[in-house]
Nucleic acid binder design. Sequence first.
DNA 1: CCTAAAAATTTGCATAGCTAACTAAATGGA
DNA 2: TCCATTTAGTTAGCTATGCAAATTTTTAGG
Lengths: 138, 138
Amino acid sequence: MFDQCLYFNTTSLARQLEREWTLAFKPYGLTPSQAFMLRVILAKAPIAYTNLAAELNITKATCSRTVEGLCKLNMVKRVQADADARSFELVPTTAARSIHEQLDESSAKVTRKIKKIIGEQQFNSVVSTLRSISTSIS
Amino acid sequence: MFDQCLYFNTTSLARQLEREWTLAFKPYGLTPSQAFMLRVILAKAPIAYTNLAAELNITKATCSRTVEGLCKLNMVKRVQADADARSFELVPTTAARSIHEQLDESSAKVTRKIKKIIGEQQFNSVVSTLRSISTSIS
DNA sequence: CCTAAAAATTTGCATAGCTAACTAAATGGA
DNA sequence: TCCATTTAGTTAGCTATGCAAATTTTTAGG
């Protein structure tokens, strides 16, 4: 019924992709949200909540809770920032660093699979359009 | 960091679109999930849970809860199906029927706005690609 | 110095989604 | 007919996310 609806098709595909990436990160005991956040922290540590939230395009509240989860899993440590006592910096633990490449590779694997199915060109085109819609309406 | 990632860009756009459609349906006291479900019921009543879930691409569990919400809002009534004692048919109330066109129009309005921003051609192309990815990987 | 405004996080409350386990009814053989 | 299987829907428990309000710590002005 909603074949032409951007909202419907985007949210619906998002749910399916959630399933794919859930499987990809399951071996590491991480959900997609946790894994993507950890990948940012691994790449950009030390990073503050505000920047992390911006990078992931989520609210600070959601960011706060996901960080909490990663801390409990011993993947991330909160360090008081020097400059500003209101702020924390997030750094990966050794455990996190040891799976850095595997996390990136697990995600890349799913990407390759989907690229293979729909074709590299269509893949790139749709991703870039999604990004452009996102930017346009924000 | 995830500019080329299908998962990231799809889920991220999904959250933004959620905000747009939330505003669109707010005047009717409905969330996007409720409004889309109600639109299906309005168009296809009487309809059973299983078909409704399939149409919306959600699980039966989610479907069950959303229906519950619509019943509480007096938008939908559950009717015991004649043929099968396990099954219910969902029908819209008079209140729901009275806003049928407005719901469709509210959604169409957001669609027109986004089409105007990104161009009709790109809009149609991305929607059809989303659908094709969805079908391919399911 | 002290007070008010601003910034960073957290917490409370709510929705939506999923999986898995469960109840009840229908169906299909033997 | 009776039992095993399938089907319809519900319920419980978990994650993700958002908004709004509360908290803590700075920073700015008098």
